[in-house]
């Protein structure tokens, strides 16, 4: 059961409804939570919108916070840039209570933010948005040659991979030698 269904005590008053069928069943008051990213800017988001995120939904489902408690305890996502979190929050608000259509025109399209967006969405476990974002990533190489794909997705060549591996081994060897020398020094 979600927090919205449990009905936290400080939730906002229900909007009057005009539809006759909903008049019979009184609307459950909506509860809100607060999140912030690396920039500390706090976003107020309804529990309904946050249901898209399996991570946040799992965090809030048993909290039973009052409005004041929720406000005083925003969820910190220090690993997510403020503008990325804003995008995610906007998307969650736009899709509150409804599934994402296959071609969603409301989704973030900034290619330069795509990498960070994918990581954030993956962390927040927003399955539908993640699928769309990964589709956007895949579309970046549609019709491209392997050489172009290598550039677009910054894939090192075999020679570069081998050089990096050698370098890593060399570094690890040096570190191990340093540790051995330090241990020998300690023993003396």
């Amino acid at each position: 059961m979600s927090s919205t269904e449990q009905g936290t005590s400080s939730a906002a008053p229900a909007e009057p409804t005009t539809a006759p069928e909903s008049a019979a069943a009184p609307e459950v008051p909506e509860s809100f939570y607060y999140v912030h990213g690396k920039d500390k800017v706090v976003h107020k988001v309804s529990a309904g919108a946050l249901q898209h995120s399996a991570l946040i939904h799992g965090m809030i489902s048993n909290l039973g916070y009052t409005e004041e408690q929720a406000k005083a305890n925003p969820f910190p996502f220090e690993n997510i840039d403020g503008d990325i979190l804003q995008m995610v929050v906007d998307w969650c608000n736009q899709h509150k209570g409804k599934p994402t259509p296959p071609e969603d025109t409301n989704l973030p399209k900034q290619k330069e933010k795509l990498f960070d967006l994918v990581l954030a969405v993956n962390y927040l476990e927003i399955k539908e948005l993640l699928t769309y974002c990964c589709k956007q990533v895949a579309m970046m190489v549609k019709g491209k040659s392997p050489e172009e794909i290598r550039e677009i997705w910054m894939i090192p060549t075999d020679a570069e991979d081998e050089a990096a591996e050698k370098e890593a081994k060399k570094r690890a060897g040096k570190e191990a030698a340093g540790e051995t020398a330090a241990a020998a020094g300690d023993a003396k």
């Binding site: 795509l114 990964c134 895949a138 997705w153």
Partner: peptide
């Protein structure tokens, strides 16, 4: 705008592969 695909964690990489057609 390039993306460092191999910096994605394994599960994300797989998600991207899932969205690629056989040619890509």
């Amino acid at each position: 705008m390039p993306i460092a695909l191999l910096k994605f964690p394994t599960d994300l990489l797989r998600e991207v592969f899932q969205q690629c057609d056989p040619f890509e």
